[in-house]
Write a protein that binds this DNA or RNA. Structure first.
Lengths: 265, 265
DNA sequence: TGCGCTGATATGTCTAAGCATATATGGCAG
DNA sequence: CTGCCATATATGCTTAGACATATCAGCGCA
């Protein structure tokens, strides 16, 4: 039942029409099965043949078949349990993954010129209410407070308010950030940190509206990102976008993305 | 060293301290290397020893080491190129993945009671401006138009406006959706579709505000989701959340999530 | 000096085989 | 009929070996 694509006895080049690039055997099998699933031919709950049988059908060893099925399971398309065999997973909920792009890339990607201007920069002792932005208790230590504006074609694009921990972000105190966005600098200075994000809609306050050249009360998209390394907070940032001309976009199948893919350039 | 744990020679406990659950060898290695990377000990660009050497160090075969490194590369932590070897990836941009939860799960997860009420339901010919919601040209065919309200503890939580294509969503015309949210029904009826998402902040209009019991102009989070199977549109939906009490949350490391994981039910 | 070829190298892929482990199922005892 | 245990089964994991492929580096030739 299904896929006439059986083994091709022997090494058999076995070039399929839509070969594309990563034309390894298991990638080929993965793609074929994935299409059966998203095409609806294998509905959720569908019981697949056992590994050895599928391996036979596709003319590969069990190891190769295992790799293919394992990746499909890792990507959420299949559920595998010992003894019970392999089934097509239930697409759980209407969940989705969504990427928040880097601001500079986003502006440049839309064909506009990018610029960052610093509005204010202050090195001051931490205050209790700073905890709201960084998500951690702030001792009496010094923190670096910044406010700046990202511009697209010299028009306000995003208002950034940021706290940096000089203790963990080495060299931050020596940076003036007059034209270099702190996010870009931190990316190099604090590699592979862990971040949590929060996205909300808020009405623009008086000061926000003035800086973004909006009417007071206009809807804005607010993103708060808190970054930590190990147990120490590194930075907390609030990004405010005019709701009218900004949006997050994702284009994925439910459950799991197409995989960021290792893919070197 | 090694061969310490080959097949025959006994089960070879070799229990590591922080065993945790998926204590297979390659999972163990993956976690160990991941910690070296996010802990900053292996900075971006760091050149790892070659596969065979690492395999020796960890006392496993090259295949097992390959599996570990391959998964780390798939997850975006490493970049591997032939001849050049393996390096720690540059955490690209401040991108992030973010999950949009199912509405019902979200409400129940916050400890509140969930309810859905249908406001209006109409079966009518498609109109040109429908294309805006579903992202595809609408022929003269019939479409199902719905408006409903998701409630948390009997207070408005989310306003849903939806178009359904009866041609692809089999049985939709026979459903009345009086209490069952169309999203929940579609999940069973149209498995493994592909969706695109858009998130914006908007000011509540007069009718929206009334239904959500908000003041006109209050900031709301708007999510538009378009679902397709193969080349046919299935449904388009606009979800409007009061910005004040709703937010999207993600808790991930940059570049790639912790993997949706296979996760059985 | 500059260009192209060649070999070395590291990863990528695949195979066949075996042991490990969870679990569904059926048989047996109470 | 009920509850427990042995067994069969399907996936999970690991290994050693082999071949494929991309690419860097150095050498030789013009």
């Amino acid at each position: 039942m299904n896929t006439g694509t059986p083994k091709g006895s022997g090494p058999a080049p076995h070039r399929t029409t839509t070969a594309s690039k990563g034309a390894t055997r298991h990638n080929h099998i993965i793609e074929e099965i994935r299409l059966l699933i998203v095409g609806g031919r294998w509905p959720p709950g569908f019981q697949l043949p056992i590994e050895t049988e599928l391996a036979d059908q596709y003319g590969v060893s069990r190891m190769t078949m295992n790799k293919a099925l394992g990746q499909l399971a890792r990507d959420g398309y299949l559920v595998r349990r010992k003894k019970s065999g392999t089934q097509v997973a239930q697409p759980r909920a209407e969940s989705v993954v969504m990427a928040i792009a880097d601001i500079r890339d986003e502006v440049l990607g839309s064909g506009r010129a990018y610029r960052f201007t610093l509005i204010e920069r202050r090195l001051r002792p931490g205050r209790p209410d700073d905890a709201q932005l960084v998500g951690a208790a702030i001792g009496g230590t010094e923190v670096l407070w910044l406010e700046g504006l990202h511009l697209a074609d010299d028009r306000p694009f995003c208002l950034e308010t940021r706290l940096i921990n000089p203790a963990t972000a080495d060299g931050a105190a020596g940076q003036d950030f007059s034209t270099l966005a702190p996010g870009a600098w931190l990316l190099h200075a604090v590699p592979w940190s862990v971040a949590s994000h929060r996205v909300r809609a808020v009405n623009a306050g008086a000061s926000d509206a003035k800086l973004l050249e909006l009417a007071v009360g206009e809807a804005c998209l607010e993103i708060v990102r808190r970054t930590t390394v190990a147990t120490e907070w590194v930075t907390g940032v609030r990004l405010l976008y005019p709701g009218s001309d900004h949006q997050l976009v994702a284009n994925f199948s439910p459950e799991a993305g197409p995989g960021p893919a290792s893919s070197a350039p």
